[in-house]
């Protein structure tokens, strides 16, 4: 198994090198929404190595656990490279959903923006480095809520 944590400097350099390539120009070229309309997270949010920093970057550090969010993930994942995660909520006006894992080399895995008319339902597959908690941060009606679930990872796949 490849080690995940000993080559961090290389990863960071690669991120720096690749980060700023012509995003805005491509938006314009494709005739998509202007960049100012993109309500995404700051790219820096993806670099944080502690949960508090990552939640802070997303604006949801004080979010409490909420039973109206259903987070489905396996109790045991034999392959950390492919962990199925489904998020569903009955909260009204869900605007954003973020998926994090609290023992990955970087905390934030994916951040989604849901316009009006899109149901609060997402199913995807993530990488987990080791046994840890999957945390879902949901922004609904301007407030943040969260749900978490521990997944035991038998072969890490960050």
């Amino acid at each position: 198994m490849h080690s995940c944590k000993d080559v961090d400097s290389g990863r960071r350099q690669a991120l720096k090198t690749g980060g700023g390539l012509g995003v805005l120009g491509l938006f314009a070229m494709l005739g998509l929404l202007p960049p100012s309309a993109f309500a995404g997270a700051d790219r820096k949010a993806f670099e944080h190595k502690t949960l508090n920093e990552a939640l802070d970057a997303l604006g949801g550090q004080i979010a409490g656990e909420n039973p109206l969010i259903t987070l489905t993930a396996p109790d045991v994942a034999e392959n950390g490279a492919l962990v199925p995660v489904t998020v569903e909520s009955t909260l009204a006006d869900v605007e954003q959903i973020s998926i994090l894992a609290d023992r990955n080399p970087t905390m934030l895995i994916a951040h989604y923006t849901l316009p009006k008319g899109t149901d609060p339902y997402l199913s995807t597959r993530i990488r987990m480095a080791e046994t840890s908690n999957v945390i879902v941060l949901v922004k609904a009606g301007g407030r943040f809520y969260r749900a978490s679930k521990q997944v035991k990872v038998t072969a890490g796949g960050c």
Partner: peptide
Amino acid sequence: RTVLEGQFGTSVSK
């Protein structure tokens, strides 16, 4: 009309 948009870090599966 945009119905979903998102950003990925390095821990989304292949």
